[in-house]
Structure formats: C-alpha cells, structure tokens
C-alpha cells in the first residue's frame, strides 16, 4: 500500500517536473510545446550517454545544461519568429519538431531499448513496511519536491519570478511596464526545456529508453496541464500528483487499460469544472 503510494509519487514527481515546464512556456508564449515529450526523451538519452562516460551526476548536469541551451534556441528560432502567428502555426511547427527529434534519436541511438543504472550512491534499497523500496526512487521524489519548492520560491520572491507571473496573466501590459519580455521568454523557455531534460534524465534509471518514450509521458503531462487549469502552476502540481497516483494504481490493477485512465479522470474533472482544477493565473 505505502509502496504503491510512493510509486505514484515517483511518477507524479516526474510528471510535475515535465508539466511545469509546459506551463511556464505556455504562460510566456501562449503556445503549447508539442515537442516537450521529445525534449524529455532527448534528456534521457543525453544523460544516458554522458553517464556511461563520466558517471550519473555528470550525465545529469550535462543533460540539463544541453536542454537548457536547446530551449533558448527553440525560443529564438521557433517561438519568437512565430509569435505574431496563430498559435496553431506554432503548435504545428513544434509537432513537426517532435517527429524530427524522434527520428533523429532513433538514428543516433538506435531503436532498441537501453537501460541505465542509478548512481551507486543511491542504488540501495530501504526496508519500508516489510518491502524493499529502491533509494533511488525516494531520491526522485526528493528532487521533484526540491524543484517544486525552488520554483515556487523563485516565482514568489524573485524579481524575474514576478515578471514571469505578470507576463503569464498579461504579456502586453507587462511589456508596457518596461519588462523585456523577449529576454524573459527566452529565459523561461530555456528553464522549461531544462526541466524536461532533468525529468528525462532522472527517469532514465527507472524506465527503458526508447525513441518513443516521450509519447506516453507527453499524453499524461498534457492531461496534467489541462486538468490543472491551462497556465496554472498550482493546478499543475495538484494534477500531477493526482495523475501520478491514478496512473500507478491503473498499472497495478488494470495494466492493459492503464493508458486510458488519466484521460477518463480528466474528462470527469472537466465536466465538473470546465476550466480545470485551478483557474489560470492564480
């Protein structure tokens, strides 16, 4: 029971770290990055390769850094030139990017499953209520909590965080106050992509790496973002934890139908509250 709850927290944590990046990007650019799952996958693969050369922690650092840079490029060469277009145009382009990235990864790393070991320092198990639970999974929960705390402190207390919150509500008025929204967007998209890289790398020891791995988590993160209320940070957190639990119990009890359960939950939430759990901007 406790073990399943914790497993749900692990998945919920990964999902939160990935989804909050989508929320950040949506707040600044008003577009949904369909390639976000591919960034997650790319993060896992880069982490895998670097970790095999220089250890897990180096892999984590390099992967997050590489994805952050990629995010800044994504903003500069995709989101910024297309900002005056219909959001659909940008979504189509990021969807195209998703297909390209998936193929690129298949070409570089092959389509066979790859596995990655957790770092030796975290590879043990802990006896919890009579069952062994991997320490690494607890560490993943810890990282997700740190990200959540760090991000909300940054948003609440820092000046840039204030600009991010203001811009998420009303980018035009924020620009009128003298905020350099272009630089802000580049920063935020870079952070969002970096978080996708973080999520991908820390998930690598838990799952088998395959070029299609971005797919299933992308669905769940879309479900999280919409269920939480498009653009809401708090909503994303609550929804990620909820979907994490639901997903995990689904895998345990009805493994073959598990992919459908988060969607069903979302439809129910949306019938109950059409704009999601938390109104955006709150």
């Amino acid at each position: 029971m406790l073990i399943q709850l914790l497993n749900g927290l692990v998945y919920g944590g990964l999902l939160y770290v990935l989804s909050v990046g989508l929320v950040l990007i949506f707040g600044l650019r008003r577009v949904v990055n369909f390639a976000h799952g591919s960034l997650y996958m790319l993060g896992a693969y880069i982490g895998y390769t670097v970790a095999s050369l220089g250890g897990f922690w180096l892999g984590l650092v390099v992967s997050v850094f590489a994805l952050t840079v990629l995010g800044a490029l994504l903003d500069r060469f995709v989101f910024r030139p297309l900002q005056d277009e219909d959001p659909i145009v940008t979504m189509l382009v990021t969807f195209g990017l998703l297909l390209v990235l998936e193929d690129a990864v298949r070409t570089v790393w092959g389509k066979d499953f790859l596995t990655m070991a957790p770092p030796p320092s975290l590879s043990g198990v802990l006896l919890l209520t009579g069952t062994n639970f991997p320490v690494y999974r607890l560490a993943v929960i810890g990282i997700a909590i740190l990200v959540a705390i760090g991000l909300s402190l940054w948003l609440r207390l820092s000046r840039v965080g204030l600009y991010v919150r203001a811009s998420s509500v009303d980018p035009v008025t924020t620009g009128m106050q003298g905020v350099d929204t272009e630089r802000l967007s580049a920063t935020v998209v870079a952070i969002g992509a970096g978080l996708a890289g973080l999520s991908g790398t820390i998930s690598a020891p838990l799952v088998a790496l395959a070029p299609s791995m971005g797919g299933s988590i992308l669905i769940d993160s879309f479900v999280v973002v919409v269920t939480g209320g498009l653009g809401s940070f708090t909503g994303a957190f609550i929804a990620a934890m909820l979907i994490g639990q639901v997903h995990n119990w689904g895998v345990v009890f009805v493994p073959s139908a598990a992919p459908m359960i988060p969607l069903v939950l979302m439809v129910l939430v949306l019938i109950w509250r059409p704009s999601g759990l938390v109104r955006a901007g709150a």
Binding site: I88, F222, V226
Partner: peptide
C-alpha cells in the same frame, strides 16, 4: 476548452 487545449487533448 480553448482551441489550444482541444488540440493537446486530441493528441
């Protein structure tokens, strides 16, 4: 939902 959310959910 807004169009953006609709597109996300179709996927």
């Amino acid at each position: 939902l807004v169009g953006v959310a609709f597109s996300m959910l179709t996927l």
